[in-house]
């Protein structure tokens, strides 16, 4: 088993009477592309929230590159190299696509930047343009984000998460809200871009076809627990997963 990049040990989180996570222990190796599946409320987003410091787990530890990052803030997790995208894209709605990226590139990770150096410089402008090209959203550069179609928003959200070059990225339902025809286009784009950056990817997804095609490994959640963890074919054909997560027999994964 290769060295783990991210490892969680016995994570637990409850909200009142709702158990959002219980004894979640998973390990992700560097370079892996891991798909996370589970019904609504299975604890997938809670898992992303805990790993990125948005929520502090009630129990358990989170290790990243061997260092304990349990209880760190969002800013610290980001600085450590864990970034994320969101189920509902988190953008700067009053600004254009280009401005969103320029702002992201310019402020990224700045704790105490020199006050006399402007944010808008040739380097930041170039980098913002480069990211737009990479995620193929340059056509919408001058469009205000609140007027964008959902697909472009999702791409921009992921592009903004990639600013700063994370070691690991968590994609929370990257294809939700995108039409079935476009899903593979969008996901193909994203996975290509992510592969070339060398980032380790963990993506939450409802569409089993997408999971089957892009994941190296699949983790299935149910009611806050890990139900199954393994190769895509194995997990997607697991009877318990079929019953509780997939709800129907999945088509054969094309290539795993």
């Amino acid at each position: 088993m290769p060295e783990a990049l991210l490892e969680t040990r016995g994570l637990g989180k409850t909200f009142g009477a709702v158990v959002a996570a219980e004894d979640v222990s998973v390990s992700v190796a560097a370079g892996e592309i891991v798909g996370v599946i589970g019904a609504n409320g299975a604890g997938k987003t809670t898992f992303c929230n805990m790993v990125t410091g948005y929520l502090t787990p009630d129990q358990g530890r989170i290790l990243f590159r061997g260092a304990d990052i349990t209880g760190c803030t969002v800013g610290e997790a980001t600085a450590a190299g864990i970034h994320r995208s969101f189920q509902i894209p988190q953008l700067f709605p009053g600004l254009t696509v280009y401005e969103n990226l320029l702002l992201s590139v310019g402020v990224f990770g700045h704790r105490r930047p020199p006050w006399w150096r402007p944010l808008v410089r040739p380097e930041t402008q170039q980098e913002a343009r480069r990211v737009m090209e990479q995620y193929r959203i340059a056509d919408s550069a001058e469009t205000r984000v609140d007027r964008l179609p959902q697909g472009v928003r999702k791409l921009l959200d992921i592009a903004m998460a990639m600013v700063g070059g994370p070691a690991m990225i968590l994609l929370d339902e990257p294809t939700s809200g995108i039409s079935t025809e476009e899903k593979f286009d969008v996901m193909g784009n994203v996975i290509d871009a992510l592969r070339s950056s060398g980032a380790t990817v963990l993506f939450v997804e409802h569409d089993m076809d997408v999971v089957g095609r892009y994941a190296d490994r699949v983790i299935a959640f149910r009611e806050g627990r890990v139900l199954a963890d393994g190769a895509p074919r194995e997990v997607l054909e697991n009877p318990a997963v079929i019953e509780h997560v997939v709800g129907r027999r999945p088509p054969r994964p094309t290539d795993a």
């Binding site: 990125t52 803030t73 969002v74 800013g75 980001t78 600085a79 970034h83 994320r84 988190q90 953008l91 700067f92 709605p93 009053g94 600004l95 702002l103 992201s104 310019g106 402020v107 990224f108 990770g109 700045h110 704790r111 930047p113 020199p114 006050w115 006399w116 150096r117 402007p118 944010l119 903004m160 998460a161 600013v163 700063g164």
Partner: peptide, 22 residues
């Protein structure tokens, strides 16, 4: 400078700003 632009981030979407490490 980035300090001033961080303000636009706070105004537009604080959550995203935090996830940009600010």
């Amino acid at each position: 400078s980035p300090v001033g632009y961080a303000g636009q981030g706070v105004r537009e979407n604080e959550l995203r700003l935090r996830y940009l490490g600010v």
